[in-house]
Amino acid sequence: MPLHLIKLSVGTESPETLRQWQAYFGGLHGRIFHTTRMTPKRRAEILDDGSIYWVIKGAIRARQRVLDLEEFIDEEGVKYCRIVLDPELIETRTYPHRAFQGWRYLTADKCPPDEKQSRGTDTLPEDMADELRELGLI
Rank of each mutant, 00 (worst) to 15 (best):
C81K: 05
G50M: 01
E91F: 04
L67N: 08
Q22N: 15
E13K: 13
R19S: 11
E16L: 12
G120K: 01
K57E: 15
Y53G: 01
K7V: 03
R104C: 06
E91C: 07
L106E: 00
A129N: 03
L132Q: 07
E16M: 09
P40E: 01
E126H: 09
K7A: 02
D86G: 01
M128N: 11
S9P: 13
I138E: 06
S9M: 14
V78E: 15
D109L: 01
S9F: 07
W54N: 01
G30A: 10
V66P: 00
A62L: 07
F33T: 04
I83F: 01
V78M: 14
M38E: 15
Q101I: 09
K116V: 12
S9A: 15
R119P: 06
L67V: 03
Y24E: 15
R133A: 09
D74S: 09
E131Q: 12
S51D: 03
T17G: 05
T17A: 09
Y105W: 03
T39H: 14
R119H: 11
D109N: 05
P87R: 02
E126N: 10
T121I: 12
L28H: 14
L47G: 02
G27Y: 12
R42W: 02
I56S: 09
L28Y: 13
D68L: 02
E88R: 07
R104L: 10
T107Q: 01
I52H: 02
T121D: 14
G120D: 08
H4F: 01
T92Y: 02
L5S: 00
I46G: 00
G102A: 04
L8I: 14
P125Y: 13
P113D: 05
G102D: 08
I90M: 06
L85H: 04
R104D: 08
L28A: 13
R65N: 02
E13R: 13
